[in-house]
Simulated scan of single mutants.
Amino acid sequence: MARRNQHSREELQALAIQAVRDLVAEHGLEKLSVRKVAERIGYTAGMLYHVFANLDDLILQANADTLAQLLEAMIDCPSPEAREQLQHMAQVYVSMAQDHTPLWKMVFMHQMQNAAEVPEWYQKKTAALFREVEVRMAKLAERHDTAQIHLAARTLWGSVHGIALLAADDKLVVAGDVNAQAMIESLLQHYLNSWAEA
């Protein structure tokens, strides 16, 4: 590893974020600490506090990277059809929950310490996902107003998230060992059919 003074602030930030991702993938979020991140990259915890406000900030920065990768994969669909794009988005979401469970859970289950507010910049990152869902749902039923689209996108994605969570925790056996992707297909088929006809 390079000497400490050979890393710029941006490089140190990138090293720390990658260390967070690696540590969480290896040991889970509950065992993460600034000290462990610092040890992983060969710095002191005090040095990291010059780059990140606290552990929450470090986690949110790492989550922002995960969200960016997730969103990029979700919108990378070859079909121009909104319904097929939504199907692809949901399948990618569930696949990430199953294949990269610790990182996926860190995004959606991290709780801010001391009930601190989630910063606005991070709220915008999470809102971007819903915005992509809203755009496609609007194409399926343009007569619906903004409030209806807003509600429907969150209702649909809340259901997708529930399936993803069960899949991530390997709890689908309680539903009769049903395939997660089959559940997603069923959910979207019935919900979107109803949405388009309403």
Score class of each variant (00 low, 15 high):
S8H: 02
R83N: 06
R40T: 08
I59E: 03
L140V: 10
E30D: 12
K105F: 13
M89D: 08
G28A: 02
L166T: 02
V51Y: 04
Q189F: 09
T44D: 12
L166G: 09
A128M: 12
I75A: 01
H110P: 02
S159H: 14
E11F: 03
L55I: 09
P78N: 03
N63K: 05
D145V: 12
E120A: 15
L165W: 09
S95K: 12
E39V: 10
A175F: 15
L58F: 03
L12Q: 04
V37K: 02
N114P: 00
I59C: 05
P80M: 02
T44Y: 07
E11R: 12
H50I: 08
L165K: 10
K139V: 08
Q91F: 08
H27V: 01
D56R: 12
R154N: 11
F108M: 08
E142C: 10
Q87Y: 03
Q69P: 00
H88E: 04
L129E: 13
A16V: 03
K139S: 12
H7L: 10
L187S: 04
W157D: 13
V92N: 06
L129T: 14
V34N: 05
A82S: 14
W104D: 06
A168T: 00
Q189I: 03
S159L: 14
H7D: 00
V135L: 15
D169K: 05
E132R: 15
R21P: 05
A116M: 11
E132L: 08
W121T: 06
V107Q: 07
M106R: 00
